[in-house]
Computed example of a mutant assay.
Amino acid sequence: MPPTEVTVHVNRGSAEALEPSSTSLETNGSFLLSLQGHESPAHVHCRLTGDLERIASIEEPNYFVERDGVTTVPIAVNTDVIDRPVDGHLEVVTGYGSESISIAVTVVPGPAAVDVDESLAEPARSEPEPTALEQASERIPALSGLEPGTIAVLALGIVAVGIAALTAASIGSPVVTAGLAMVVAGFAVALFLLLQ
């Protein structure tokens, strides 16, 4: 994630003028101060005040801002030492102290550190989810050694025998009973051939 940035316009409209793009900033880490030069060059001094001074630092407090140039000031913040928000101000001064602005800065604790276990470096095994038929075959011990196609034929045969039995029972004709016998015989032969 790129650092947060706040811009201050230097000498825009008049000499020794400072205009911040924002008067407050909230961050959970280091941030940048962008000094945007305008009509004339300027010497700018930056400093931190309040509790912010305890956890943040500016490597170099004095900067020369070129006309129409941009000077970036990195502000390092150590959020590892805080467990609650810290407030302070970033002050920008020019014209040997004649003009200054103050930007309220609130630093909030960063996200908690995550311990990474070495096992995360190993690729995860991606086994496909078992199908409903495979799950059913695992639950019924007698079916566990059969192939899914065999189990499907077995299920279809049981449904066919069930329909034939219901038809024979509801009609009660000797022809339908003979048809039931043929369905059962066909199912038995198919089962025998599949299990060989």
Rank of each mutant, 00 (worst) to 15 (best):
N11W: 01
R12F: 00
S14M: 11
S14T: 13
S14H: 11
E16W: 14
E16M: 14
A17M: 12
L18T: 04
L18W: 07
E19F: 00
E19G: 00
P20C: 05
S21A: 13
S21P: 03
S22K: 11
S22F: 04
S22M: 09
T23K: 13
S24T: 13
L25F: 05
E26D: 12
E26P: 00
E26W: 04
T27E: 04
G29Y: 05
S30M: 06
F31I: 10
F31V: 07
L32H: 12
S34F: 01
S34P: 02
L35A: 04
Q36M: 07
G37M: 06
H38R: 15
E39H: 09
E39R: 13
P41Q: 05
A42W: 02
V44L: 06
H45R: 10
R47C: 10
L48K: 02
T49G: 12
G50I: 09
D51L: 11
A56V: 07
S57D: 12
S57I: 11
I58F: 00
E60Y: 12
E60T: 15
P61D: 14
Y63G: 05
Y63R: 11
F64N: 08
F64M: 03
E66L: 13
R67F: 10
G69L: 10
G69I: 13
V70S: 07
T72I: 15
T72S: 08
T72G: 00
V73K: 01
V73M: 08
P74A: 00
P74C: 00
I75E: 02
I75A: 03
A76I: 15
V77C: 03
T79V: 14
T79H: 02
V81Y: 00
I82M: 04
D83A: 12
D83C: 07
D83I: 10
R84A: 13
P85G: 03
D87A: 13
L90V: 09
L90M: 09
V93L: 11
V93H: 03
V93I: 15
G97H: 06
S98C: 09
S98H: 14
E99V: 13
I101Y: 06
I101F: 09
I103D: 03
I103C: 04
I103A: 03
A104H: 10
A104W: 06
T106C: 06
V107T: 10
V107A: 03
V108R: 15
P109Q: 09
P109I: 08
P111D: 00
A112V: 11
A112H: 07
A112K: 14
A113D: 08
A113Q: 14
V114I: 14
D117A: 10
D117M: 04
A124D: 11
A124V: 15
R125M: 10
E127M: 08
E127Q: 09
E129Y: 10
E129R: 15
E129P: 02
P130N: 06
P130S: 01
T131I: 07
L133A: 08
E134K: 13
E134N: 09
E134Y: 03
E134Q: 15
Q135Y: 02
Q135W: 06
A136H: 09
S137C: 05
R139H: 08
R139N: 02
P141K: 10
P141W: 06
P141D: 06
P141T: 12
A142S: 12
A142K: 08
A142V: 13
L143H: 07
L143A: 08
L143V: 04
G145M: 09
G145Y: 07
L146F: 13
E147M: 13
E147P: 00
E147R: 15
P148C: 05
G149Y: 04
T150C: 03
T150K: 05
T150G: 04
I151N: 01
I151A: 02
